[in-house]
Computed example of a mutant assay.
Amino acid sequence: MAWRSSGATNEALIENLARHGLITSSRVKQAMLGVDRAHYAPSSPYQDSPQSIGHAATISAPHMHAAAAESLLPFLKPGSKVLDVGSGSGYLTHVLAELVKPGGRVVGVEHIQPLVELGTRNTRKSEEGRELMDAGGIRYVKGDGRLGWAEDAPYDAIHVGAAARDVHPALVEQLKAPGRLFIPVQEGNYQHIYVIDKKEDGSVTRKKEYGVQYVPLTDAPKD
């Protein structure tokens, strides 16, 4: 029902996603209501579809952001620490920050500086975003997301917003125990979401879920 979830306003979009069962958690619904997608999407912000943001990157469709937030939700609590690999426009980074405040922190990592700057600029368009950034609740950094971001590890939850060639070991290593990784993985001509759980005893399980279509998690473009 994703194709029928678009709306004329941010509120209409989120209400339609909830009505069609694409958002089931009240916490995720409130977080997404609190982050206006118009600050992050270059055009048609309330359409439930991905959009290019330049630099061979996209802002994913809202229903995919909802699916990621709901999957990670058991690990998104006040004070939790989150890594958002391929933070792009900054939209989901902000939504995740809403879900871990007060006291939580989300690090968005991008492989080219213009996308780091884009996420920062977009987040600062709203008063809520400015407050989170000024308080350290959101931080954007430049780095190879396949290697995670060791400086702030370990993380309660890690989201990857581009299709990886495999479940990169560094990301699993940087998870807390317990913790969860949500990652799209390229398998031949297809991509699937994998949910990787690290248990309290350090053991790791991986669950293959539904098919998706993301841009690849790659090296930064050559100048």
Results as ranks from 00 to 15, higher is better:
95 V>R: 03
186 Q>K: 06
175 L>C: 02
203 S>M: 12
101 K>L: 03
213 Q>E: 11
148 G>L: 06
199 K>P: 01
15 E>N: 08
198 K>V: 08
90 G>K: 09
117 E>N: 05
216 P>N: 14
21 G>K: 01
74 P>H: 04
35 V>N: 06
118 L>P: 00
95 V>C: 06
186 Q>H: 01
124 R>F: 01
89 S>D: 10
33 L>E: 08
49 S>R: 05
143 G>V: 15
200 E>R: 15
32 M>E: 10
141 V>C: 02
95 V>L: 08
5 S>Y: 00
15 E>V: 07
133 M>K: 02
102 P>F: 04
177 A>C: 09
89 S>C: 14
119 G>Q: 05
22 L>H: 07
205 T>Y: 08
169 P>C: 13
131 E>M: 07
29 K>I: 08
60 S>A: 09
114 P>D: 11
112 I>Y: 12
120 T>A: 07
16 N>I: 04
204 V>A: 14
51 Q>N: 00
102 P>K: 09
205 T>H: 06
123 T>G: 11
176 K>G: 10
38 A>D: 05
131 E>L: 12
76 L>Y: 01
85 V>C: 15
50 P>S: 07
218 T>R: 09
107 V>M: 06
195 V>Y: 00
171 L>V: 14
214 Y>S: 03
56 A>T: 10
182 F>K: 04
140 Y>N: 04
35 V>G: 07
147 L>Q: 12
212 V>I: 13
71 S>G: 01
195 V>F: 01
122 N>I: 04
64 M>Q: 02
207 K>D: 13
109 V>S: 10
81 K>L: 12
25 S>W: 01
129 G>T: 06
32 M>Q: 15
154 P>H: 14
194 Y>K: 14
215 V>M: 14
35 V>S: 08
134 D>N: 11
154 P>E: 09
223 D>S: 11
176 K>A: 14
191 Q>K: 11
12 A>S: 09
79 G>H: 14
78 P>E: 09
123 T>K: 08
24 T>P: 00
155 Y>A: 12
220 A>P: 15
209 E>C: 09
100 V>E: 04
193 I>F: 05
130 R>F: 00
63 H>F: 06
129 G>W: 00
132 L>W: 01
161 G>V: 14
52 S>W: 03
109 V>P: 03
59 I>P: 00
84 D>L: 15
67 A>P: 00
24 T>W: 00
174 Q>T: 10
124 R>S: 06
86 G>I: 12
90 G>L: 11
36 D>L: 07
131 E>H: 05
133 M>A: 05
142 K>H: 05
171 L>T: 08
133 M>L: 05
69 A>N: 02
211 G>R: 12
38 A>T: 05
151 E>G: 02
198 K>E: 06
97 A>E: 11
39 H>Q: 08
172 V>M: 11
23 I>W: 03
128 E>Y: 03
211 G>E: 12
123 T>L: 11
208 K>L: 04
82 V>L: 13
83 L>I: 12
26 S>Q: 11
152 D>Q: 06
150 A>K: 04
107 V>H: 03
213 Q>G: 08
33 L>V: 13
99 L>C: 15
63 H>N: 08
89 S>W: 07
2 A>E: 13
44 S>K: 02
